[in-house]
């Protein structure tokens, strides 16, 4: 009995001593904690306060009563979200558009990286590389403006396809395709950066050994280059699946028009319209909360999957 008591006493003494050490270290590092204060204040104000503000998703918000004064209405907004056909259509659009982009977007950066890797003419490689990254740094407002020029009845596409007076931007049948193509045009080059880096990490002696054995370039690509990219492609794709509810607000917002809204309206543009334009704050917050929660769940899921598959290499945290 006695020894047990003294054991716990000893343990708590040790813990006390540890706490003391930590406390003393905190005092010694007080300047460091002070340095963290500005960022923490910003994050609390602009990231955590809005998360708290999500409570208006469960309220009937009105301007005069404010966030705290407005009456609670429970899950009414969410009931509306899952019964309103427009909402369901918006969710459907979001998933379809992201899936299209995800699947169609996979091969282009890989092709670009492998092709650039094979080109031995330096100026050509450098030029294509630099130019293909460029669109990534141009805003979607500008890209949307350029696309509408190209697709206008006087533009190059109408000329090449011999179309007379067709407004391609307002054609619902092809609009999702347009979103996919412009996304690839803008991002494929930049997405190839990560593959280029992986390729530069391949051991050169592998290629040398292969060519000694008489392997052609084609065979070297098939048996050395591509296999070394497989796990990266899997990781990138899985992580992209976690982002499926982000179908690209900037792009859709700037390319969209009322003629194609039915097929192109995504969660983010819907939230913008319901919130900022129509000012139904509670409902659009509910839609936003639905998106954030689903997004977080998917992110954790895909990260777990990717961690399992690649044994901790492909985790983002």
């Amino acid at each position: 009995m006695n020894s047990v008591l003294s054991g716990t006493a000893g343990r708590s003494a040790v813990r006390k001593k540890e706490n003391n050490v930590i406390f003393r270290r905190m005092v010694r590092y007080k300047a460091l904690y002070l340095m963290l204060v500005p960022a923490l204040v910003c994050v609390i104000l602009f990231n955590y306060a809005p998360i708290g503000g999500l409570m208006i998703a469960f309220k009937d918000y009105n301007l005069t009563a404010g966030v705290f004064g407005s009456p609670w209405i429970g899950f009414e907004n969410f009931r509306k979200l899952f019964s309103d056909p427009t909402c369901l259509n918006v969710i459907k659009n979001t998933v379809i558009i992201s899936m299209y982009k995800l699947i169609c977007g996979i091969p282009f950066p890989i092709f670009l990286a492998v092709a650039l890797n094979e080109v031995k003419v330096t100026w050509m490689r450098k030029t294509v590389q630099t130019v293909s990254y460029l669109p990534h740094f141009i805003s979607w407002v500008v890209v949307a403006g350029m696309v509408s020029n190209i697709l206008s009845p006087t533009g190059i596409v109408a000329k090449l396809l011999n179309l007379d007076n067709v407004m391609l931007m307002t054609e619902p049948k092809i609009f999702r395709g347009l979103l996919v193509i412009t996304e690839i045009w803008k991002e494929a080059g930049w997405n190839s950066v990560i593959y280029m880096a992986a390729l530069s990490g391949i051991d050169v002696t592998l290629y040398e050994a292969a060519s000694m054995d008489g392997a052609s370039r084609m065979q070297r690509i098939r048996h050395i280059t591509l296999p070394s990219l497989t796990s990266l492609v899997v990781t990138v794709t899985i992580l992209a699946c976690g982002n499926i509810l982000n179908a690209g607000f900037d792009q859709v917002f700037n390319m969209q028009n009322s003629m194609v809204q039915e097929v192109s309206d995504i969660i983010d543009t819907y939230v913008y319209r319901m919130g900022i334009v129509e000012m139904s704050y509670s409902f659009s917050s509910a839609v936003g909360l639905f998106k954030s929660v689903t997004g977080l769940i998917m992110l954790i899921t895909v990260n777990t999957i990717s961690r399992k598959l690649t044994e901790n290499e492909g985790s983002i945290w």
Binding site: L45, F46, I51, G52, G53, V67, Y281, G288
Partner: peptide, 9 residues
């Protein structure tokens, strides 16, 4: 928090 709560803050 999303668009609207951030706007309100």
């Amino acid at each position: 928090g999303g668009l609207i709560p951030t706007y309100l803050v």
